[in-house]
Structure formats: structure tokens, C-alpha cells
Design a protein around this nucleic acid. Structure first.
Length: 220
DNA sequence: ACGAGGATGCTCT
DNA sequence: GAGCATCCTCGTG
């Protein structure tokens, strides 16, 4: 396999996100054991996106960036990991995109286990169905032992990195709106391999919002 | 196959 | 204090 370089990530976020589908997430353990997963689902978050964690530090009028807060890390060097705690419980893994100074990130939402499944099963104790091991952004970080100790570390070198497989395959990529957000639901920036069982079971946010509205209208 | 609810802690107002 | 880029369990059909 070939490690992805900084150049790969220093591009338009909406190009990088689908390009990461089919690539590999690799964690090399101190023991030498390799945990490998095929990326089957990603989401793009851009500088001009209300769901973006760096949204609040961009001055809408002038376009200037205030160098403060958690979100400023998303304007850093492309290829860096942006790892944050979601709902006080689960770590989520992003990779920073765009040239330095522009904001952007791709959320790794689901992978298919290829190597090190024994380790993954240990980390995901109690999970019975194989597809439940890594079919979600919080599940895969638990499975791969990823937390904030990787925050702001480059994902272009061991121990945690992204790579292209020996044989690239042309996967059927589908798109939808993103999962679990309330703003920016109109953007179809979720990419996933059509029919892959490790794609997360979450409902796209535009559908969730529509159902919510329908429910409200039905109540007298 | 759904829907509801709870656990939990960080960030920003 | 509000608002989350989640996951799991336990209800009801």
C-alpha cells in the first residue's frame, strides 16, 4: 500500500471526500500489529458550511479568520487529524483538507475491517454482528483505538495513517445529505459505497427534518 | 422495523 | 445553560 501525502489533502474538500472512499485507514500498534479498514463512508465539511466547526471563527463580512478556539485547527496543515469528543462519549476522526489557511475537513464515518479483526473485536467487546464493529464514526474510533492523542498529528505517517490499496477498485459511490446535523442539511456531502454493509445505518438529516415537520403538522 | 430515552463532557453564548 | 458531526438498550408493532 502507498501512504497518502499532504498533496492529496491540500485540495478541494468536495474532491477529497469521495476520493477517500476505498482508501485504507491504518493503525500500527506498538506490538507491530496492523489494524486496517477500508473507508466506505465519508462526509465533507467546508469553510462555507454552517455545520463546520470552524464556521463561527470566519467573519462573514470580511472573510477574515479569527485564530482562536477549537475550530481553528481546521485551518491548519492538510493531512492533520482533527479528533474531537462527540456528545461527551465518542471520539470522531476527521482529516484536515484544503491548503493551509483555508478551512475544511473530511469526517471518516465508516470502515470495513480488513486486518486486525481480533483486536477490533476486543475493543468492541459485546458486539455480536460483524457489521456493527465499525459502521459509524464513533464505532470505528473505538475499534481502532483512536482518541485525542492523535489530534493535530499528521495522518501521512505511522502509527496512524491513510493509504491507497495495492489494487484500486472503482466502487459505486452514492451521495446523500449528512447524518446527525441540524444546519447545512441541504448539502449532499455524504459519500458512501452503495450496498456496502458497513455503511452506517443513520438517516440523512434532510429526511429526519422532513419527518419532524410532518409530525408537527399532524399534531392538532 | 421503527421510536424514545439515557449516558456524558466539551465549546461557545 | 444550550447545543451538539453518537451509540446502545429497551419498548412497541
Amino acid at each position: 500500500m502507498e501512504l497518502l501525502t499532504e498533496d492529496f489533502f491540500a485540495r478541494d474538500t468536495l474532491t477529497v471526500a469521495p476520493d477517500l472512499i476505498g482508501k485504507l485507514l491504518v493503525h500500527e500498534r506498538p506490538s507491530g500489529e496492523r489494524i486496517v479498514g477500508r473507508i466506505v463512508e465519508t462526509e465533507a465539511y467546508t469553510q462555507d458550511d454552517p455545520a463546520f466547526h470552524g464556521w463561527g471563527i470566519v467573519d462573514r463580512a470580511t472573510g477574515l479568520i479569527k485564530p482562536e478556539g477549537r475550530g481553528y485547527d481546521l485551518f491548519g496543515r492538510p493531512g492533520k487529524a482533527y479528533v474531537y469528543l462527540c456528545y461527551g462519549w465518542y471520539w470522531l476522526l476527521n482529516v484536515v483538507t484544503e491548503p493551509e489557511g483555508r478551512g475544511g475537513a473530511v469526517l471518516i464515518r465508516a470502515v470495513e475491517p480488513l486486518e486486525g479483526e481480533a483486536f477490533i473485536r476486543e475493543r468492541r467487546e459485546g458486539i455480536r454482528k460483524r457489521t456493527d464493529l465499525t459502521s459509524g464514526p464513533g464505532k470505528l474510533t473505538q475499534a481502532f483505538d483512536i482518541d485525542d492523542r492523535f489530534h493535530n498529528r499528521m495522518l501521512t505517517q505511522p502509527p496512524l495513517y491513510l493509504a491507497a490499496p495495492e489494487q484500486e477498485q472503482a466502487w459505486p459511490i452514492a451521495v446523500s445529505s449528512r447524518i446527525g446535523i441540524t444546519r447545512g442539511v441541504e448539502f449532499k456531502w455524504r459519500y458512501f459505497i452503495q450496498g456496502n454493509p458497513f455503511v452506517s445505518p443513520g438517516t440523512p438529516s434532510d429526511i429526519v427534518m422532513r419527518r419532524k415537520l410532518e409530525r408537527k403538522l399532524q399534531r392538532p
